[in-house]
Design a protein around this nucleic acid. Structure first.
Length: 955
RNA sequence: AGUCCCGUAGCUCAGUUGGUUAGAGCGCUACCUUGACAUGGUAGAGGUCACCAGUUCGAAUCUGGUCGGGACUACCA
């Protein structure tokens, strides 16, 4: 083994080997365990969030593989409709080409080219991360098989009346020219105005206070061109006499009714609301209740039409409605139209006032432009029917969220779920399996042939397929079963479905998790017909944020590429990476400055294992993660520590020529020291804890447990305790064998414990020590995961080592505080020890002398005078370091004072407790007894130290 | 507006059913190149657990409130 740990040398080869040998495929034996990867979008490359989630999935996968499960981690990618189409359009735009220049087929070809490239980037990144997915099963949401599943689901839902088509208001993105679902709309608080307009009353009617107009307030003046009514509250006395009367809509001249509707808030604005059913979701409902028309005034760009269009609520065009668009408004952008409307109202003397107003503005999550409620034909999924069993599955505990609090979020959305608009006016995606004839009839089916034969359509009837595609999330909703071969090949489905756990972020609980639950419960059934859940657990991870706690995003220029942390990157390259290909180049300087400030050194190479360990150690439940590069450095050092510990083990279990020494594998007496028994005992507890933490998804606690065991117990103490055995000329062969065997076996076991988190370093070291540990096998991946053996828990050994540590730390404390050179060997005196103490010393003298660097150890009898000494207490026993020539009297007095003060404080606190009548009578006996024992011990200690103090002072 | 999360050492965070001397990593101080490791070792400094009130013999932990930070959902034109 090399002297220093260099991750690059070991990581590249092992992954290739594992993959070539097909270790990632399910073993075909044991109970099944399955995780579906949340398919990354093929829009670019993996970010820290992916690295985080995939580390957790890989740890779970490797763990279950090692516990003997038939384990499948299913990989794949998502076509990410809008997002990917936008990426490719932006690329084309660099050459001044639009998708329309290319035409649909050519454009889609380009997107496939991009998909190949981006998909390749993603999978190679995944390999670098060490993900043990079964690549032979890799899927893409637009594969033939998955497209089959999409069609099948669409057709069946249509046949069950759970998918329908209708002309309704949708969230229209006027930039991307597509409908989007409610979830893709981001509502943002922005400041704007509330314009108060006067609408003249028709037929000479007057208001209660004698005006010939009423005042409506609006934040969207331009939509008044499509007004079909004015609404007031039914109990608003100011206006009751006007209900049923009319106003003449200014500019347009249309006569529209005044209606009474509960929707109106009497106390807001003027209490009169203009109703524009074709351009506002609430107005749509009001209009529907009062059977007004729908008057659309916008085109697909949200520009004013030359001639408005009127529809009824069945979506049919209607005649006889005045659809005038006033002169000069046609083709005006919505915001220009707004200005003009306001100006025109003002000119007409109909502008009452303008108030500042904060309002909520809906923006498209991809385009960022203001979304327009717009009347179009779209396809919908009736969500309520599907939602019911999906709610129940969580209520009944068939699906559990970890942490549990996310179930609230899930319920609150599901119980108020709206129909899901699934059609998108894009080119990249699954084209909707619906065909139209020239009479406007719709036929839904798996193919044109199926449609023709099913509906007996003659060959000469022309059919054209719906040009729209489905929402990306429609296909991802089928992910757990479409990837396993549904609807045609159900073998894998039978084996691996329901899957075990979904690891994902809370940001897609609605987009994805909820919809997967709905679709899967509806389509996948057990043999007895009961529905199958897609997964039994949902592990919801936090978000990885930057060092400031900001969300990482390309536009903010604060993203970290996990590969850069693994390989390291120069500052200049990092800056270059963060500032290239930006959508907002004006931010370049700011990003550069922030980056140079945050990471003045760039990143050193840390290796995959260190990154993975960092991510798991940060994986607390229900909390976002501020990614701290310092933490990564610490765990890189941890890898180095493991590496060097392994080197020590190897050096002491092989001779200079690399031949194995006798580690007790081939018979011969084996004698275990107390240290050997102690570390074996401690290992059992660690094994039990690790298993528990897997069950609880507490990767943070697991990492901490492993870190502490390896560093603070195995390295800091056990390795040191092994040295006296190896270096003592009097050690017997049996003793040497015992310690060698323990040394290497504990290491070998520990490597298996860390393997799911740190696959590379564990494999590399394991390969070079497996023989020494008497283990055979091709890869640590295929070894069994360690299981705690309670019979190896050795209380006696643990207590003995605690005692030993107490003495050693006591001596070291005196050395440290008194500035005694580490090289100076000390003469140690013990006084007032019990039989146990004496026994322990007898058993451990060798260890004690070596680790505390002692020249001699002498027991004083009870009455014996001690020379002036610095004192430490281990229980009742006094450990004395003679001061002569070493220790300054005042320094020792000061040190004792410090100790005594601490003791005094504790004694006060505890005796206060014990003097409290209530505590003694009401607290459990065990607690009282414990406090009493503590007090006794501290009092005795205090007395001893005081005595010692007096002795020193009087000398 | 509703729901939820968070506030613990200079920084990033653990602390599982109330009973610990409140922990870790990084950073800091002093000493040490001893034959696994200076990406290291040893010793140490550092906390009124945001604040207030309550429940309790006992609260970082439970309850209510206040302040501060954040997330999600909904929304009055």
């Amino acid at each position: 083994m090399d002297k220093t740990y260099t991750p690059q040398n070991i990581e590249s080869n092992w992954y290739k080997t594992w993959e070539e040998k097909n270790y990632f495929a399910p073993s075909g034996q044991g109970d099944s365990y399955c995780i579906m990867i949340p398919p990354p979008n093929v829009t670019g490359s993996l970010h820290m969030g992916h690295a985080f989630q995939q580390t957790i999935m890989d740890a779970l996968t490797r763990y279950h593989r090692m516990t003997g499960h038939n384990t499948l981690w299913q990989p794949g990618t998502d076509h990410a409709g809008i997002a990917t189409q936008m990426v490719v359009e932006r690329l084309l735009a660099q050459d001044n080409v639009t998708r329309h220049d290319l035409g649909r087929d050519k454009f889609i070809e380009k997107v496939w080219e991009w998909k190949e490239q981006s998909g390749g980037t993603i999978t190679s990144q995944q390999r670098r991360l060490g993900t043990s997915v079964d690549w032979s099963r890799e899927r893409f949401t637009m594969d033939d098989g998955l497209s089959e599943a999409v069609k099948e689901v669409f057709v069946r839902l249509y046949e069950e009346d759970l998918i329908y088509r209708g002309k309704r208001l949708v969230n229209w993105d006027p930039k991307l020219h597509t409908a989007i679902s409610d979830l893709e709309v981001e509502n943002k608080d922005e400041s704007g105005f509330l314009w108060h307009f006067r609408y003249p009353l028709a037929d000479g009617v007057q208001t209660a206070d004698g005006k010939d107009y009423i005042v409506v307030a609006t934040t969207r003046p331009e939509t008044m061109l499509g007004d079909t009514a004015v609404a007031v509250h039914p109990e608003d006395e100011r206006y009751t006499h006007l209900v049923g009367k009319f106003v003449d809509l200014p500019l347009v001249g249309r006569r529209i009714p005044i209606v009474a509707d509960e929707y109106v808030d009497k106390d807001f604005g003027t209490g009169c609301v203009k109703i524009t059913p074709a351009h506002d979701f609430n107005d749509y409902e009001v209009g529907k209740r009062h059977q007004t028309a729908l008057i659309n005034v916008f085109d697909r760009d949200a520009k004013i039409l030359k001639q408005a269009e009127a529809f009824n609520f069945e979506g049919q065009p209607i005649d006889g409605i005045d659809c005038t668009i006033p002169e000069g408004y046609g083709e005006l952008d919505r915001y220009d139209a707004r200005k003009k409307i306001v100006a025109d109202f003002e000119a007409l003397g109909l502008l009452e006032e303008i108030k500042d107003h904060s309002l909520v503005v809906p923006r498209g999550d991809r385009s960022g432009v203001v979304i327009e409620p717009w009347l179009t034909d779209q396809w919908y999924v009736s969500a309520k029917t599907l939602a019911e069993p999906a709610i129940k599955a969580v209520e009944d505990g068939d699906i559990e969220f970890v942490p549990k609090q996310w179930e609230n979020t899930y319920y609150s959305w599901m119980r108020d779920i709206q129909d899901w608009c699934i059609s998108r006016q894009l080119w990249w995606g699954h084209q909707i399996p619906a065909w139209y004839d020239n009479d406007g009839n719709v036929y839904v089916g798996r193919s044109e042939e199926e449609v023709r034969s099913k509906h007996n359509l003659a060959d000469d009837i022309k059919l054209r397929q719906d040009e729209d595609v489905l929402d990306t999330w429609f296909s991802s909703a089928l992910w757990t079963f479409s990837t396993l071969g549904w609807p045609h090949d159900e073998e894998a489905l039978k084996t691996f479905h329901s899957t075990d756990v979904l690891v994902t972020g809370f940001d897609i609980i609605f987009f994805w998790v909820a919809r997967m639950i709905m679709m899967t419960l509806h389509f996948i059934k057990n043999e007895d017909g009961t529905p199958q859940v897609p997964f039994k657990k949902v592990y919801v991870t936090g978000l990885i944020r930057d060092e400031q706690g900001q969300k990482m995003s390309k536009s903010k220029g604060n993203v970290l590429d996990p590969i850069d942390l693994i390989d390291g990157i120069e500052l200049d390259d990092l800056v270059q990476k963060r500032t290239s290909g930006m959508m907002q180049p004006q931010l370049k300087q700011k990003i550069e400055k922030a980056t140079r400030k945050a990471f003045p050194e760039g990143f050193a190479e840390s290796g995959t294992d260190a990154l993975r360990f960092t991510l798991t150690s940060l994986a607390s439940l229900g909390r976002d993660i501020k990614f701290d590069v310092k933490r990564l450095e610490g765990y890189r050092n941890f890898c180095n520590k493991i590496w060097n510990a392994a080197r020590y083990v190897q050096m002491n279990t092989e001779d200079e020529n690399g031949n194995a020494l006798d580690c007790g594998q081939n018979g011969g007496d084996v004698e275990l020291s107390v240290a050997d028994r102690w570390i074996i005992s401690r290992l059992q507890s660690v094994e039990a804890d690790v298993q528990k933490y897997y069950e609880q998804y507490r990767f943070d606690l697991m990492s901490q447990t492993l870190y502490e065991f390896i560093w603070n117990e195995y390295c800091d103490w056990y390795l040191e305790l092994s040295k006296p055995v190896f270096w003592n000329e009097n050690s017997t062969e049996a003793q040497l064998r015992g310690t060698r065997r323990t040394l290497v076996r504990v290491l070998e076991t520990t490597l298996r414990l860390i393997h799911p988190i740190m696959p590379f370093i564990s494999e590399e070291i394991w390969q070079s020590i497996k023989g020494l540990a008497g283990v055979e096998g091709d890869s640590i991946m295929l070894q069994a995961f360690p299981v705690a053996d309670e019979s190896k828990i050795d209380q006696q050994a643990e207590q003995d080592i605690e005692w030993l540590k107490g003495v050693i730390v006591g001596v070291r404390n005196i050395r440290g505080e008194m500035n005694i050179a580490p090289s100076k060997a000390l003469d140690l005196l013990f006084r007032n020890g019990s039989e146990d103490d004496k026994q322990r010393l007898a058993n451990n003298e060798n260890f004690l002398k070596a680790l505390a660097k002692l020249e001699s150890i002498t027991w004083l009898n009870d009455g014996d005078e001690a020379p002036m000494s610095a004192t430490q207490l281990v229980g009742q026993m006094e450990v004395l370091v003679p001061m002569a020539g070493l220790i300054d009297k005042d320094a020792e007095i000061a040190r004792l004072n410090k100790e005594l003060e601490k003791l005094q404080k504790d004694i006060q606190r505890i005796s206060g407790k014990l003097n409290n009548e209530n505590f003694v009578s009401k607290a459990p006996e065990a607690v009282v007894a414990k406090e009493k024992a503590k007090l006794d011990e501290m009092s005795a200690a205090s007395a001893k130290l005081n005595e010692q103090m007096e002795a020193i002072k009087s000398m």
